[in-house]
Design a protein around this nucleic acid. Structure first.
Lengths: 202, 202
DNA sequence: GCCAGTTTTGGACAGTCGTCAAGATTTTCT
DNA sequence: AGAAAATCTTGACGACTGTCCAAAACTGGC
């Protein structure tokens, strides 16, 4: 391969990858708006500025597009509380900061969280998503565990539950809050999350 | 209304209601097998012994059928742990019994639980289901709270979280276990649930 | 300005979907 | 028994789906 053709090929690859990312972004937009059950390829294409045919130029089929989109989604949702962890100088401050951060993302990113739960649920029926979902879940678990460990450290105590139990509890809390938030109710997520954090170390 | 026509009307209503229940049962079977996204009316009809046209004789449209099915579903899933509560003579026994009951229903009724989470998630996108879902969730919350209160009583202590937080935590725990169970992994749900119960009173 | 390769379009395809209505069948009453 | 009402089947409809493909549009090198 000559120097020139190499440069061309690389540019080609870059453009190809960029288009994939672009289309995956549109897919996420459609999915978060309509839900998995009602999202079609034509709907996704309309969110982008391309026609529906182009999707099969960049992806072999719908499953590959959605899988790719899920992986892309992962990037934005597994470091959400790290700032609160880094900032906090005391246990009480982390408790408060963590709760506030959770309540913030509930309000700001509600449709994205809704999408995540929808995709995780799809993986209960469609094995194709299962591996990616489990991996994202593992990373989310790690994200929560960083909070719990730091909190324990600041409070001079140790966690009284495993990391998987801690993650499950906060995830359940968030999901409940999301359900009620989207139904138009007020939630007490910030307070509930903070107080639950307090219960998980001793 | 004469005595005769009253008898006729009642029998008619009974039969009508019975068919609706019958068809809703088939709907639940299809839903739990395929998931909301892939369940069609023809699929539901095939699970019953009728043709697809009959569904619009007993239900005005798909949404009414599914809503009816969800309500029917509620009946079987909100008293699941009451026996463990009634049996337990001590805190430790309840802790164990509750964990075992959870792990049992995880194994036995996995597809039904999967369906529940799927429908609850649909309500995040489709407002038509929201009211029913919230009501079922309230009843599930009450079911969990009966366990926590009884456990606190037996342990001569009091709950350290609200009923909504307690429900959210156990629900999250169960959902995680379901995800891993359907992925073919072993879970430690019985132990985790028992130990979490211990953490929620003091 | 032309040409080869890449990228994009838009229509066609074979299915499936929810819905509906006309007719066949069964049940019920007199 | 036959008439009337309830119940069920069947086929059709328009809309929508994922997928594919031939042709058009665009790209950069000569």
């Amino acid at each position: 391969m000559t120097e020139t053709s190499e440069r061309i090929a690389r540019r080609s690859v870059d453009k190809f990858a960029q288009r994939r990312a672009e289309l995956a972004e549109s897919a996420l937009q459609a999915l978060s708006e309509l839900g998995y059950a009602r999202t079609s390829l034509r709907e996704i294409a309309q969110k982008s500025n391309f026609s529906h045919g182009v999707l099969h130029y960049y992806f072999t089929d719908k499953v590959e597009l959605l899988t790719y989109a899920v992986r892309k989604f992962e990037e934005v949702c597994v470091t959400r509380y790290d700032e609160a962890v880094a900032m906090a100088q005391s246990a009480e401050e982390l408790q408060r900061g963590f709760g506030v951060a959770m309540a913030d993302t509930l309000r700001t990113d509600a449709v994205m969280h809704r999408l995540w739960y929808d995709l995780r649920n799809q993986s209960l029926f469609e094995a194709a998503f299962r591996a990616d979902v489990l991996e994202i879940d593992t990373q989310r678990q790690a994200m929560i565990w960083r909070v719990v460990e730091r909190y324990a450290e600041l409070a001079d105590a140790s966690p009284v539950v495993t990391r998987s139990v801690a993650y499950a509890a906060f995830d359940g809390l968030f999901q409940q809050a999301l359900l009620h938030h989207l139904a138009g109710e007020e939630t007490r997520l910030a307070e509930d999350a903070g107080s639950l954090l307090g219960q998980l170390v001793s």
